[in-house]
């Protein structure tokens, strides 16, 4: 006789099942994201190779698919070294923060109507909070390294994140206003019929740029600019700690892609009902991930002061204007209704 036949258990079984399903969903999303993030390292190299008329890593396994295994093995067996002049606690903490915040932020992404870790009614704000926390990874890592290049990277990172998160938030407000909710699932559902990309085009542009900047991908990789700063804030990192920064960055790409899809491209929504919603979500997200790589392959890194000027002088006014116009239109349309 199984435990499940007990009446008490029978009574709470639905709750147990839903808890298990909740945990299951969380694990599915967690592993999905981490594995995708890790595989991004291979995909990025292959795709960059494609756009640069070369092959990229294609030797390990079919199409180089097991390259990741090789890389992982390498990273795992590297010496886990902490520089003697580093602040040990913060030095270890920083990569955890880098990867942790990005994965946590994924919690609020509604992948399909059924799949999603948590439907927070402040989902957008939670994302903002996590993106804000992610800056600490860079700050702590760079500061704890005790290295001048790392410190320069930190200074840049702090200024860049501070600048771009301002209108990262503002650029989403138009979408929030249209949906009337901070809940991402509501936002997705609000796009039935018309994706936000059309009414919120400038919001999308601002969010795209700010998103790239927040996860400091090319061309906004100021904190880690190899050429000038010799790897910037993670110059002293190696082995698995560096690997966590690395994977964290790719998770960030997935996160921002997923956010773009959720906010502006109707999330899992798609025209053909035979195609399952997850496929739509994955396709759209994947396309943006490739777009991120394409940008890396083609756009050079601007000078640091140009980055700041772009942020404060152009993108911030753009988002504000976009918000005002959105508000005005909503009020006008709402008033008419």
């Amino acid at each position: 006789m199984s435990v499940f036949s007990l009446p008490a258990v029978q009574a709470i079984l639905p709750q147990l099942m839903s808890i298990a399903w909740g945990i299951g969903k969380a694990l599915i999303v967690l592993f999905g994201v981490v594995i995708c993030g890790a595989y991004m390292s291979l995909v990025e190299r292959r795709v960059l190779g494609l756009w640069q008329d070369r092959y990229g890593p294609n030797r390990v396994g079919p199409f180089g698919l097991f390259q990741l295994v090789a890389d992982m093995l390498k990273i795992f067996f590297k010496e886990d070294w902490i520089p003697p002049f580093a602040d040990k606690f913060l030095f270890v903490l920083a990569p955890l923060v880098a990867m942790g915040t990005m994965i946590l932020a994924f919690m609020v992404i509604p992948v399909t109507p059924d799949l999603g870790v948590a439907d927070l009614n402040i989902g957008v704000l939670f994302f903002m909070a996590m993106a804000g926390l992610a800056v600490y990874a860079v700050l702590l890592g760079g500061y704890a390294s005790g290295n001048k290049y790392a410190l320069l990277g930190v200074a840049r990172s702090a200024a860049q994140s501070l600048s771009y998160e301002v209108f990262l938030g503002l650029s989403m407000m138009g979408v929030v206003a249209r949906a009337g909710s901070f809940d991402l699932r509501t936002i997705v559902l609000s796009q039935q019929g018309l994706w936000n990309i059309i009414p919120q085009f400038f919001g999308f542009i601002a969010f795209l740029i700010a998103g790239i900047a927040v996860v400091h991908r090319h061309p906004f990789d100021q904190p880690e600019a190899e050429q000038e700063l010799a790897d910037g804030y993670h110059i002293e990192y190696g082995g698995m700690k560096w690997g966590m920064f690395f994977v964290g960055e790719y998770v960030g790409i997935i996160l921002i892609s997923a956010m773009i899809v959720t906010l502006f491209f109707g999330g899992w929504l798609g025209p053909f009902s035979v195609v399952p919603p997850f496929v739509w979500f994955a396709l759209k997200t994947g396309a943006f991930m490739l777009f991120f790589i394409l940008i890396r392959a083609s756009v050079p890194r601007p000078r640091y002061d140009q980055v700041m000027i772009l942020s404060w002088q152009y993108l911030l006014p753009l988002t504000l204007v976009n918000l005002i116009i959105t508000g005005a239109v909503l009020l006008w349309v709402g008033g008419a209704a």
Binding site: W51, D53, R54, Y55, L294, A297, V299
Partner: peptide
């Protein structure tokens, strides 16, 4: 970006 994207269709140099 567009031009770089079109390189996907080019022959590999390596």
């Amino acid at each position: 970006i567009g031009m770089v994207f079109l390189h996907a269709a080019r022959k590999r140099q390596t």
